[in-house]
């Protein structure tokens, strides 16, 4: 009885989470431009979406900014973690405190602050200011995911390698990097997704004439919802589903491999 109540509860929450998305997916195949009348199956909104030069430009911007911002954040963040390891604990915690600010602050404040900064310095807002801002809010996530991987053991192994005649570069590549690698990759992926997902900070730090997917959606919704946005929703949903499935399957495999190793 109790089990069934739980199942029904989960089902209701799932319906709440997914019915709106499902509605968008169904409407994206609707022949007529209506939110409530079904006019037959059609792919024309997908056609419109793929032929929209604005949308294609926004997609290129979104992903190029996400990759670059994640790369910059990963390099700056990882170096920062290594540098902090050589510092006094008090300096470290002070730096980590500053590091937390963009994560804890409301996005609107971060966005406005960066916008005012660009205005004061006199940098015209555009692609580069978005990139700078995205790297700013991504670096904290990289630091948080890489920092736990640095410990005394890494240091000892590194020194041992040096004592055994390895060059600094070789020891770094063979000892330190593999040790940090899981943190580095998850920091990169986290940064990438945060950047793709961001709207508010981009909205304040972009200039006129440059769009990411999010800012383009916002301006189009303001004018009036077109069904091509439903097509976009469907594509975004399917891509997210595929990516998450791949991640999950890979994690499953790794877990199983780990278990097998432990059994040996």
């Amino acid at each position: 009885m109790k089990k069934r109540a739980g199942k029904i509860y989960v089902l209701i929450v799932m319906l709440f989470l997914y019915l709106p998305i499902l509605t968008l997916i169904v409407l994206s195949f609707n022949e007529v431009k209506s939110m409530s009348v079904w006019g037959g199956f059609s792919l024309k909104w997908y056609d419109e979406l793929f032929h929209s030069r604005l949308m294609m430009g926004a997609i290129v911007n979104t992903f190029s900014i996400a990759i670059l911002a994640a790369l910059i954040a990963t390099v700056v963040g990882t170096l920062a973690v290594l540098g902090m390891a050589a510092m006094k604990p008090r300096t470290q915690s002070a730096l980590l405190g500053f590091n937390n600010i963009p994560m804890l602050n409301a996005d609107i404040v971060t966005g406005i602050a960066l916008m005012l900064f660009f205005l004061m310095v006199g940098v015209p807002r555009g692609y580069m200011t978005i990139l700078f801002s995205h790297a700013t809010f991504c670096i904290p996530y990289v630091i948080l995911s890489v920092r736990p991987r640095v410990n005394r053991n890494t240091d000892r192994l590194y020194e041992a390698a040096l004592d055994l005649g390895a060059s600094e570069r070789y020891a770094f590549r063979r000892i330190v990097l593999p040790e940090l690698w899981p943190g580095i990759t998850s920091g990169f992926l986290l940064s990438f997704t945060m950047s793709v997902d961001d709207f508010i900070i981009t909205y304040f730090t972009r200039g006129a004439g440059i769009n990411t997917i999010s800012t383009l959606i916002y301006s189009e919704v303001k004018i009036g919802i077109r069904p091509s946005l439903f097509a976009l929703s469907t594509i975004v949903f399917v891509v997210a589903l595929a990516v998450l499935l791949v991640i999950n399957v890979r994690k499953d495999k790794e877990d199983r491999a780990d278990n097998a190793l432990q059994a040996l």
């Binding site: 170096l79 902090m84 960066l114």
Partner: peptide, 21 residues
């Protein structure tokens, strides 16, 4: 492993991206 100087880009980024704004 590390020299403190590795953190310099990060510190500059905090100043320019968070504190000054």
């Amino acid at each position: 492993i590390a020299k403190k100087s590795y953190s310099i880009p990060f510190i500059i980024w905090i100043i320019a991206g968070t504190l000054v704004p």
